Simulated assay, not measured.
Amino acid sequence: MTKKVALIIGASRGIGRQIAIDLARNGYAVVVAAKTTSNPHDPSIPFPPPPNSFASTINTVAREITDLYGGTATAIAVDTRDTTQINHLISETVRIYGKLDVLIYNSGAIWWSSVENTPVKRFQLMQKINPEGLYASVHAALPYFEKNEWKGRIIVVSPPIYSRFFRGKTAYAMGKVGMSVLTKGLAMDFEREGRKNMAITSIWPAVSIESAATGDMVKKDPTSERDLRKPTIFSDAILAMLNAPVHKVNGLLDLDEDFLRRECGVADFSKYAVVPGSSPRRIMPAKFPILEVEEQDDEGRRMDSAQLRAGRVKI
């Protein structure tokens, strides 16, 4: 396999579908993974199906890539609540293509409401799919990045960390912020271990993106479509992140628009508007808090629980 291999988890429709298609169009062999599957040749379903509908599955996305764009794609089903299935997904990706260069975690569960109106089961579901699914996917992928001489990229769909994000969706924010903490922490691990060709980056939309979730909003209020962007802005930003030097993106929590403007010189974003001529409202702050402290590099005496458990370190 001479192409770079990218695994996109959460690629059945919307943003994930667009990421998979655009990576394939840019020379990647892609594995599209999600829970929902279908017969991509079902004559009762139009092909290609509407990109934000439930008719769009990993199987139809893989067929779009191979049949419409001449790309290389494989669909593998996975339930990210099941660690065994995640381990199988990663190993099967490497079995088929021989390596793993890029891991993108787009899988997610959403429930935006107050703590009082968020049932415990809904909270647990979000944690299982969002931070736990991400952690299991990254943990399963790391040994294969090691076999690839620690050359690779991980992209996480999670936000910059700031207080307003918690308002009105605390249960959801707990998981998503946890995903961003993983980005920051693993980036520090890469730096500490001298893995100069590995990077993990988080990306989040600056403006609401057309998807299955925003489709419900448009049904209730058709005028809200003017505040949406096409998912291509997200895939364009991810491609730019994958092509950027490691030191620019490792540990970065950024927005699609901001990265494209700052690192790629994009000034006109009008082509991404769903409604031509509209000016979609930015939903994210213009600036974010700096998380680092003055004592950032002063860890004191470092403790490693794994080494302690193995008896290799004594206190």
Rank of each mutant, 00 (worst) to 15 (best):
R13D: 04
R13Y: 03
R17N: 00
R17V: 02
Q18V: 09
N26M: 04
A29K: 12
V30M: 09
V32K: 12
S44T: 15
P50T: 01
A55M: 12
A55T: 10
A62M: 08
T66W: 03
T66K: 15
G70H: 12
D79W: 08
R81Q: 14
G98M: 09
N106A: 15
W111L: 13
Q124A: 13
Q127L: 14
E132K: 09
E132Y: 14
A140E: 01
A141C: 07
P143D: 06
P143W: 10
P160G: 12
M179V: 08
A187C: 11
E193P: 09
G194V: 10
I200W: 10
T201M: 11
V207S: 05
I209L: 10
A212I: 06
D216M: 14
K219M: 05
K219R: 15
K220E: 07
D227Y: 11
F234N: 03
D236L: 03
I238K: 11
M241Y: 02
A244M: 09
A244N: 09
E257A: 13
D258M: 11
F259A: 06
E263R: 04
C264E: 14
D268G: 00
A273W: 00
P276K: 05
P285V: 06
P289T: 12
L291K: 02
L291R: 04
L291W: 02
E299C: 07
E299N: 08
R301S: 10
Q307K: 15
G311M: 11
I315W: 15
